[in-house]
Amino acid sequence: MRYRHYKGGIYEYICTARLESDPETKMVIYRAADNSIWARKQENFFEIIEINGKPVQRFELIE
C-alpha cells in the first residue's frame, strides 16, 4: 500500500511491528521514495492533524 504524507511525500507501507522495549507500542514501518526505511508509532501514522485550521490525515492512503 502507498500513502501520501500531508507534506506531499509518497511512502510505501511495509508492515506493523512491536517496539522491543515496550511490546504494547505498535509501530508502522514504511519506505520513502529514496528507499530509506522509517518507523513511526501506529497511532501517529494514522492520526488526524490540523493544518491551517483544517483537519487532515498525516498519511492518506492513495492505493
Rank of each mutant, 00 (worst) to 15 (best):
residue 1 M to C: 10
residue 2 R to V: 02
residue 2 R to T: 00
residue 2 R to F: 08
residue 3 Y to E: 12
residue 3 Y to N: 12
residue 3 Y to V: 05
residue 4 R to I: 14
residue 5 H to I: 09
residue 5 H to Q: 12
residue 6 Y to M: 11
residue 6 Y to Q: 11
residue 7 K to R: 03
residue 7 K to M: 06
residue 8 G to V: 05
residue 9 G to L: 04
residue 9 G to Q: 10
residue 9 G to S: 08
residue 9 G to V: 06
residue 10 I to E: 06
residue 10 I to S: 01
residue 10 I to A: 00
residue 11 Y to E: 04
residue 11 Y to N: 02
residue 13 Y to K: 12
residue 14 I to L: 08
residue 15 C to P: 08
residue 15 C to I: 15
residue 15 C to D: 14
residue 16 T to L: 11
residue 16 T to P: 04
residue 18 R to H: 04
residue 19 L to M: 07
residue 19 L to C: 09
residue 19 L to F: 09
residue 19 L to V: 05
residue 19 L to Y: 08
residue 20 E to G: 15
residue 21 S to L: 12
residue 21 S to I: 13
residue 21 S to H: 11
residue 22 D to A: 14
residue 23 P to G: 06
residue 24 E to V: 11
residue 24 E to L: 09
residue 24 E to D: 13
residue 25 T to A: 09
residue 26 K to N: 14
residue 27 M to E: 01
residue 27 M to V: 01
residue 27 M to R: 04
residue 28 V to W: 06
residue 28 V to H: 04
residue 28 V to F: 12
residue 30 Y to L: 15
residue 30 Y to N: 01
residue 30 Y to T: 03
residue 31 R to N: 05
residue 31 R to W: 01
residue 32 A to Y: 06
residue 33 A to V: 07
residue 33 A to N: 12
residue 33 A to M: 07
residue 33 A to I: 08
residue 33 A to F: 07
residue 34 D to A: 09
residue 34 D to W: 01
residue 35 N to V: 14
residue 36 S to L: 11
residue 37 I to Y: 09
residue 37 I to C: 07
residue 38 W to E: 03
residue 38 W to L: 12
residue 39 A to F: 05
residue 39 A to I: 13
residue 40 R to N: 02
residue 40 R to S: 04
residue 40 R to I: 15
residue 41 K to V: 14
residue 41 K to T: 15
residue 41 K to N: 10
residue 42 Q to V: 02
residue 42 Q to L: 13
residue 42 Q to I: 03
residue 43 E to W: 02
residue 43 E to T: 12
residue 43 E to M: 11
residue 44 N to H: 13
residue 44 N to F: 10
residue 44 N to R: 14
residue 45 F to V: 09
residue 45 F to S: 05
residue 45 F to E: 02
residue 46 F to I: 14
residue 47 E to T: 02
residue 47 E to W: 01
residue 48 I to P: 03
residue 48 I to V: 14
residue 48 I to F: 05
residue 49 I to E: 01
residue 49 I to Y: 00
residue 49 I to L: 00
residue 50 E to V: 10
residue 51 I to W: 09
residue 51 I to N: 06
residue 53 G to E: 00
residue 53 G to P: 05
residue 54 K to Q: 13
residue 54 K to G: 00
residue 54 K to C: 10
residue 54 K to N: 10
residue 55 P to Y: 04
residue 55 P to F: 08
residue 55 P to K: 14
residue 56 V to R: 05
residue 56 V to L: 07
residue 58 R to N: 11
residue 59 F to I: 08
residue 59 F to Q: 06
residue 60 E to V: 03
residue 61 L to A: 15
residue 61 L to R: 12
residue 61 L to P: 05
residue 62 I to F: 03
residue 63 E to F: 01
residue 63 E to P: 08
residue 63 E to H: 01
